[in-house]
Protein backbone atom coordinates (compact mmCIF):
# COMPACT_ATOMS: atom_id res chain seq x y z
CA UNK A 1 0.00 0.00 0.00
CA UNK A 2 1.10 3.52 -0.79
CA UNK A 3 2.65 5.23 2.21
CA UNK A 4 0.50 8.34 1.95
CA UNK A 5 -2.74 6.33 1.76
CA UNK A 6 -1.67 4.40 4.79
CA UNK A 7 -0.96 7.58 6.73
CA UNK A 8 -4.29 9.02 5.64
CA UNK A 9 -6.26 5.97 6.80
CA UNK A 10 -4.44 5.83 10.12
CA UNK A 11 -5.06 9.55 10.52
CA UNK A 12 -8.78 9.06 9.91
CA UNK A 13 -8.80 6.22 12.43
CA UNK A 14 -7.09 8.29 15.12
CA UNK A 15 -9.41 11.24 14.47
CA UNK A 16 -12.45 8.94 14.70
CA UNK A 17 -11.17 7.62 18.00
CA UNK A 18 -10.64 11.16 19.25
CA UNK A 19 -14.12 12.11 18.11
CA UNK A 20 -15.53 9.14 20.02
CA UNK A 21 -13.63 10.36 23.06
CA UNK A 22 -15.20 13.81 22.72
CA UNK A 23 -18.67 12.29 22.35
CA UNK A 24 -18.13 10.20 25.44
CA UNK A 25 -16.71 13.07 27.43
CA UNK A 26 -19.24 15.78 26.57
CA UNK A 27 -22.38 14.13 25.27
CA UNK A 28 -22.41 11.05 27.50
CA UNK A 29 -20.35 12.15 30.48
CA UNK A 30 -20.62 15.23 32.60
CA UNK A 31 -17.42 16.97 31.60
CA UNK A 32 -19.39 19.90 30.14
CA UNK A 33 -21.55 20.22 33.28
CA UNK A 34 -18.51 19.96 35.52
CA UNK A 35 -17.25 23.34 34.36
CA UNK A 36 -13.75 23.93 35.56
CA UNK A 37 -13.70 20.68 37.49
CA UNK A 38 -12.28 22.58 40.48
CA UNK A 39 -14.01 21.77 43.74
CA UNK A 40 -13.90 22.68 47.40
CA UNK A 41 -14.91 20.50 50.33
CA UNK A 42 -17.75 20.98 52.79
CA UNK A 43 -18.40 18.70 55.77
CA UNK A 44 -21.69 17.83 57.39
CA UNK A 45 -22.55 15.42 60.24
CA UNK A 46 -25.88 13.64 60.00
CA UNK A 47 -27.47 11.46 62.65
CA UNK A 48 -28.65 9.17 59.85
CA UNK A 49 -27.85 9.19 56.17
CA UNK A 50 -30.11 6.34 55.04
CA UNK A 51 -28.86 4.91 51.75
CA UNK A 52 -26.59 7.82 50.82
CA UNK A 53 -23.47 6.65 49.04
CA UNK A 54 -20.25 8.09 47.74
CA UNK A 55 -20.66 10.06 44.53
CA UNK A 56 -24.30 10.75 45.25
CA UNK A 57 -25.34 14.14 43.87
CA UNK A 58 -25.42 17.33 45.92
CA UNK A 59 -28.17 19.63 44.70
CA UNK A 60 -29.31 23.10 45.53
CA UNK A 61 -32.74 24.17 44.32
CA UNK A 62 -32.68 20.94 42.31
CA UNK A 63 -29.52 21.80 40.39
CA UNK A 64 -26.41 19.64 40.63
CA UNK A 65 -23.67 21.62 42.43
CA UNK A 66 -21.37 18.85 43.60
CA UNK A 67 -20.99 15.26 44.69
CA UNK A 68 -20.51 13.33 47.92
CA UNK A 69 -16.81 12.65 48.24
CA UNK A 70 -16.74 10.35 51.23
CA UNK A 71 -18.98 8.91 53.92
CA UNK A 72 -17.43 7.94 57.24
CA UNK A 73 -18.66 6.99 60.69
CA UNK A 74 -17.54 9.48 63.31
CA UNK A 75 -16.76 7.38 66.42
CA UNK A 76 -16.71 10.43 68.74
CA UNK A 77 -20.14 11.85 68.06
CA UNK A 78 -21.69 8.63 66.73
CA UNK A 79 -22.81 10.38 63.59
CA UNK A 80 -22.14 10.01 59.87
CA UNK A 81 -19.54 12.46 58.60
CA UNK A 82 -20.21 13.30 54.96
CA UNK A 83 -17.66 15.21 52.88
CA UNK A 84 -18.94 16.92 49.77
CA UNK A 85 -17.00 18.21 46.78
CA UNK A 86 -18.73 21.39 45.66
CA UNK A 87 -17.96 23.15 42.40
CA UNK A 88 -15.95 26.30 43.10
CA UNK A 89 -18.27 28.45 41.02
CA UNK A 90 -21.03 27.91 43.62
CA UNK A 91 -20.61 29.68 47.00
CA UNK A 92 -22.97 29.14 49.89
CA UNK A 93 -23.60 31.31 52.99
CA UNK A 94 -22.45 30.19 56.44
CA UNK A 95 -25.98 29.36 57.62
CA UNK A 96 -26.77 27.02 54.72
CA UNK A 97 -28.62 23.90 55.78
CA UNK A 98 -28.02 20.39 54.40
CA UNK A 99 -30.51 17.55 54.37
CA UNK A 100 -30.54 14.01 53.03
CA UNK A 101 -33.41 13.79 50.56
CA UNK A 102 -34.86 11.20 48.26
CA UNK A 103 -35.75 11.79 44.63
CA UNK A 104 -39.19 10.29 44.19
CA UNK A 105 -40.46 7.62 46.55
CA UNK A 106 -37.98 4.92 45.68
CA UNK A 107 -35.31 6.99 43.92
CA UNK A 108 -31.72 7.59 44.83
CA UNK A 109 -30.77 9.67 47.81
CA UNK A 110 -28.98 12.95 47.53
CA UNK A 111 -28.01 15.91 49.64
CA UNK A 112 -30.04 19.05 49.31
CA UNK A 113 -28.44 22.38 50.22
CA UNK A 114 -30.68 25.27 51.18
CA UNK A 115 -28.95 28.61 51.26
CA UNK A 116 -29.40 30.93 54.28
CA UNK A 117 -28.94 34.66 54.51
CA UNK A 118 -25.53 35.10 56.10
CA UNK A 119 -22.98 37.55 54.59
CA UNK A 120 -20.11 35.17 55.30
CA UNK A 121 -19.57 32.39 52.78
CA UNK A 122 -18.54 28.81 53.53
CA UNK A 123 -14.90 28.08 52.77
CA UNK A 124 -13.00 24.91 51.92
CA UNK A 125 -13.23 22.38 54.78
CA UNK A 126 -16.01 24.24 56.62
CA UNK A 127 -18.71 22.43 58.56
CA UNK A 128 -22.39 22.86 57.80
CA UNK A 129 -24.13 23.26 61.17
CA UNK A 130 -27.76 23.01 60.19
CA UNK A 131 -28.43 19.42 59.16
CA UNK A 132 -31.44 17.21 58.68
CA UNK A 133 -30.82 13.47 58.38
CA UNK A 134 -32.61 10.98 56.22
CA UNK A 135 -36.18 10.09 56.91
CA UNK A 136 -36.32 6.41 57.76
CA UNK A 137 -39.51 4.89 56.52
CA UNK A 138 -39.91 2.41 59.42
CA UNK A 139 -39.54 5.17 61.95
CA UNK A 140 -41.99 7.32 60.06
CA UNK A 141 -44.61 4.59 60.05
CA UNK A 142 -43.93 3.83 63.73
CA UNK A 143 -44.40 7.48 64.57
CA UNK A 144 -47.59 7.59 62.58
CA UNK A 145 -49.04 4.55 64.36
CA UNK A 146 -47.96 5.87 67.75
CA UNK A 147 -49.64 9.20 67.08
CA UNK A 148 -52.79 7.48 65.90
CA UNK A 149 -52.86 5.38 69.08
CA UNK A 150 -52.30 8.45 71.20
CA UNK A 151 -55.01 10.36 69.36
CA UNK A 152 -57.56 7.59 69.83
CA UNK A 153 -56.73 7.12 73.53
CA UNK A 154 -56.92 10.87 74.04
CA UNK A 155 -60.28 10.85 72.30
CA UNK A 156 -61.45 8.02 74.54
CA UNK A 157 -60.23 9.93 77.60
CA UNK A 158 -62.14 12.97 76.44
CA UNK A 159 -65.29 10.93 76.04
CA UNK A 160 -65.20 9.78 79.66
Amino acid sequence: MERSTLNLLVGIFVLLGFFAFLVLAFKVGNLSAGGSGQTYTLVANFDNIGQLKERAPVRSAGVLVGRVKSVRFDPVHYTAEVRMAIDTQFKFPKDTSASVLTSGILGEQYIGLEAGGDDQMLKDGDQIKLVQGAVVLERLIGQFLFNKAQDSSAAKGAQK
Binding site: K27, V28, G29, N30, L31, S32, A33, G34, P57
Partner: peptide
Amino acid sequence: QAAVDFRHDI
Protein backbone atom coordinates in the same frame (compact mmCIF):
# COMPACT_ATOMS: atom_id res chain seq x y z
CA GLN B 1 -25.07 12.91 31.71
CA ALA B 2 -26.10 13.10 35.34
CA ALA B 3 -25.13 9.49 35.99
CA VAL B 4 -21.93 9.10 33.96
CA ASP B 5 -18.93 10.73 35.58
CA PHE B 6 -15.99 11.56 33.37
CA ARG B 7 -13.22 10.53 35.71
CA HIS B 8 -14.89 7.56 37.40
CA ASP B 9 -16.56 5.97 34.42
CA ILE B 10 -15.05 7.17 31.16
